[in-house]
């Protein structure tokens, strides 16, 4: 059996003259939770749509469970970015309808709908029409609708947006439970906290291209660790600065500076030997948030630089 549930290679899409997605590849290991991160308008949704065969790529191909995505529709559950339900339908019927679209029996769909809704604290609105529900509630209904047929691959496009913290927590639990059931989960987000907690692997898309692929730790490892050091003894600031790597900043009583993995022990040795003492010391990996911002800024900077060079070249020509 293939180790990857989703394999998309070189996906490219033009909207008019604009290249919305440029040579994006995704490989989602079976049974994992995989995050696609990126700023607004980076091309996440278009990449997911192409991966699922909803729109055709201008170049590249996508395989789900080793086949064309259209051939395995019944094994996929999908929550689109633009939420949509028939407002006149009752919640239970709406979920059963979405299950029926993926081949689930209507009555079984209705039964599972009631179970899911009760588990998620929505039992009050089981037979309520969608139009009477809040946006968040309707979103939870749609989420249930996209997993009611127990799919092997669950694709969620920005699932957390529009949910309150309690429902976000419930959704995280649901995602983990589906993964434990054996499903593979692919989701997009621009909220790093969820990705950091949930993802086994992730890809970062910025300016239409994939800029990073790996685990959360890999992403965090892109930036040096951050050190906060507070000496116990009073000493001249310049003397302390000489002890620390270049670029150390004094804010209040503490010094802040980045440090490479290899430099940690030598620095500790220097501090111990100096006799300045340690009133406080923390060495932390930067959060995924920082890594993400770092990557996106780098990409933006290179774009600005290119644009600048182009402008100069044009002016010279």
């Amino acid at each position: 059996m293939n180790d990857f549930s989703v394999e998309a290679r070189g996906l490219t899409k033009y909207f008019g003259d604009f290249k919305a997605v440029d040579d994006v590849s995704l490989a989602v290991p079976t049974g994992s939770i995989y995050g696609v991160l990126g700023p607004n308008g980076a091309g996440k949704t278009t990449s997911l749509r192409m991966t699922l065969g909803i729109i055709d790529p201008d170049a590249g191909s996508s395989r789900v469970f080793g086949e064309r995505p259209q051939a395995v529709r019944h094994r996929i559950g999908y929550l689109p970015e633009e939420r949509g339900l028939y407002p006149g339908m009752k919640a239970r019927e709406a979920i059963a309808f979405m299950g029926a679209l993926r081949g689930l029996d209507w009555s079984e769909g209705r039964r599972r709908a009631a179970t899911f809704m009760t588990e998620l604290g929505l039992e009050r609105v089981i037979d309520e029409k969608i139009r009477k529900m809040s946006k968040g509630m309707a979103q939870m209904i749609q989420l249930i609708g996209s997993i009611v047929h127990a799919p092997d691959l669950i694709v969620l496009d920005e699932p957390f947006s529009g949910l309150d913290p309690v429902n976000q927590e419930r959704l995280e639990t649901l995602v983990r439970r589906e993964r434990d059931r054996g499903a593979t989960i692919l989701f997009s987000t621009h909220v790093m906290a969820h990705a950091e907690r949930l993802c086994d692997r992730l890809a970062i898309i910025a300016r239409s291209q994939r800029r990073f692929e790996g685990t959360v730790d890999d992403a965090r490892g892109l930036l040096p660790m951050q050190v906060r050091y507070t000496p116990r003894a009073d000493a001249d600031a310049s003397a302390i600065a000489a002890l620390l790597p270049a670029g150390a900043e004094l804010r209040g009583d503490s010094w802040f500076f980045p440090i490479d993995d290899a430099d940690v022990e030598p620095m500790l040795t220097r501090i111990t030997a100096s006799g300045l003492g340690v009133a406080g010391l923390s060495i932390t990996r930067p959060a995924l948030h920082d890594a993400f911002v770092h990557i996106v800024r780098q990409v933006d900077a290179s774009f600005d630089a290119n644009a600048g060079t182009d402008a100069v070249e044009e002016a010279l020509a």
Binding site: I54, Y86, P87, L101, R102, Q142
Partner: peptide, 17 residues
């Protein structure tokens, strides 16, 4: 128009031919 208006079309397009 209904499906395009309430965005259900993407669910349909993803789920069935």
């Amino acid at each position: 128009a209904e499906e395009k208006g309430n965005k259900v079309i993407e669910i349909l397009a993803a789920a069935v031919p």
